[in-house]
Design a binder for these strands. Sequence first.
DNA 1: GGTAAACGGAGATACCAACTCCGCATAACC
DNA 2: GGTTATGCGGAGTTGGTATCTCCGTTTACC
Lengths: 223, 223
Amino acid sequence: MTRDTVPVATVRPLRRDAELNRRKIIESARVVFSERGFGATLDDIAHHAGLGVGTVYRRFPGKEQLVEAMFVERMDEVRELAEQALEEADPWEGFVTFLTRTAELHSDDRGLREVMLSNNFGQERVAAAKERMIPIAVELVRRAKASGQLRADFEETDLAIIHMMIGSVAEYTQEVRPELWRRYLGVLLDGLRADSGEKRPLFPEPLDLPSLDVAMCAWKPRH
Amino acid sequence: MTRDTVPVATVRPLRRDAELNRRKIIESARVVFSERGFGATLDDIAHHAGLGVGTVYRRFPGKEQLVEAMFVERMDEVRELAEQALEEADPWEGFVTFLTRTAELHSDDRGLREVMLSNNFGQERVAAAKERMIPIAVELVRRAKASGQLRADFEETDLAIIHMMIGSVAEYTQEVRPELWRRYLGVLLDGLRADSGEKRPLFPEPLDLPSLDVAMCAWKPRH
DNA sequence: GGTAAACGGAGATACCAACTCCGCATAACC
DNA sequence: GGTTATGCGGAGTTGGTATCTCCGTTTACC
């Protein structure tokens, strides 16, 4: 058995142009999924990459597989975020940091939001990445409750719903005021703090009526 | 000019069966739109009414017109709700009643939620009904702030966004726990109250993990 | 019983996303 | 530079869904 006939996986490397295009596809998928979510078509991605659809389908069996390839690492980023938040000295601050940073990611990347809140995208590898997150999020909640700063009746599944709410605001107003979700995260945090201290001032400013109107025109419910 | 040639609008009344069917259509449209939102097709509505599609299109030029006919009165109900809330002695209680009762309507009637949060359904008459609501909602907020019970940095457009958030929870969990939105309305209200008093206990119970999983499987983002 | 009105629902039309196919281009190798 | 396998483009096929029409049949009304 010579060094050149390694038993398995001696896949001939892609031709140089093909390899370049593969990277372009992944890059474009990242951009397009993050802007438009998984409603985007592979044709959109191909066009964004300046390639034909055929080229995309030659490299990836279908949309699912592209999503899978795309988001496992992204999910692991979120988990690392949670791990960092767990290292903050103040448990409440850790909790707030986690919520805020995650919401930032969701608001910048609609695709990521969709994988995290729906079980309809990605297969085992994405599901596995989610499982890996759960114990860390649970610990984050436990610790913040134990310190008496997070209200005692908060539970881990509330995290998902809170993200759902914040994300829906981000999506609703993204064309008009992409940062507006922070205002409502502020309201929620004031509602979640156990102590009855002063409220933090809300930031940023609320929508004015014309902007609300624009947001309402842009919004179409799912069917 | 005889009595029989009255200039305008001498529309011959519908045949008895036709009139009956017209009512069935309206009734079914109410039910179907409220369960499935405006994603529902006129074919769905016809089938629910036990009629053919042709019958529906004979009475209503298209979906838009049916929606218009359907929701103007429903919107006015919401306005009346606001007016009643304005009559409650305690401004904060009035504010809470309004938010809660409106959210109940939204959670029972997906179509109503969609007309209220989007400008893509209905024409002038629906828009006019919305305009009629605004001053009342504004007054509700003004009064609750003036009494020192609602935080001073709350503004009227926040109402719409709060409804948006609550509605998204209602939609997310409706198959599993249709009343769960009340829990998060509770959090928001604790965040909106100006005084730094005790938090109200959250109700109902949070989702358990399996139920969250079911909700996540059922949820598909809009494209 | 005659007639106009209304009915039913198959199917025309339109749209859209997923995916395939094959003639043409070009990188790789000698 | 010539040969060949590999890759490319994008029109076109497939499949699904929603809107709306048409006409043979049925029904209300006088």
